[in-house]
Amino acid sequence: MIDLPRIVSFENILFYFFSGLLGGTIFGIKYFYRVVARGYWAQDRRYWRLFSPWISSCISLVIGCMVITGYISSNQSPSTATGVCIGFIAGYFADEAVGKMSEVANALFGSSSKVK
């Protein structure tokens, strides 16, 4: 039988994932109506529109796991609403989140761009 803390943790992970999906979808819709309004719409961006929300949800999932494990800490007590907020923000700003994670990875592991 699965104990209650594991169920709660799994629920939190799902909140991060789906709120990130929501954030990425909202970002894609916002981008879409802006480019249509400006006359820049191109049908060749079909794959970007399809995959962008899912990338955002995966980024939110990873950031959510970082919060749950304590790798990223805050003074707020963890709650469902906090998870949804962090997941949505991470999904909406997934491009910036990936850039920041790249900076963290370079600080932890070093840069792979060596001059040959």
Rank of each mutant, 00 (worst) to 15 (best):
V8L: 12
Y92D: 01
G28C: 14
A42T: 05
G91C: 01
W41P: 03
R6H: 11
S60V: 01
M101P: 13
I29T: 14
V35C: 03
R6W: 06
G99P: 06
W54K: 04
G91E: 00
I86D: 02
S102Y: 02
V36R: 13
R38E: 11
G39F: 14
V62S: 10
G39N: 10
Q76F: 13
S60M: 09
I63T: 13
D95I: 11
I86Y: 09
W41T: 10
V104G: 01
S77T: 14
F32P: 03
S113I: 08
E11H: 11
P53C: 09
V115G: 13
V36W: 07
R6T: 13
R38P: 05
I72S: 05
F17V: 06
I2E: 12
Y40D: 09
F93D: 02
G64K: 04
G28L: 06
T80P: 09
L4C: 05
I68N: 06
Y31K: 12
S60A: 15
L61C: 01
R46P: 01
W41S: 11
S79W: 09
P53R: 01
S77L: 13
G70A: 06
N12W: 12
V62A: 10
A97V: 15
I13H: 11
W54M: 09
G110N: 03
K30Y: 15
I26Q: 00
A94H: 06
T25R: 00
Y92T: 00
I29R: 09
S102P: 03
V115K: 15
A107W: 06
V67P: 00
I7K: 03
S9Q: 12
V8M: 06
L22H: 04
F109S: 10
V98Q: 03
F18E: 00
L4K: 07
A81Q: 12
G70V: 13
I13N: 10
F27V: 02
Y33R: 15
I59T: 04
V36K: 15
I63D: 07
G91V: 00
G23C: 04
Y33H: 15
A81P: 00
I59C: 10
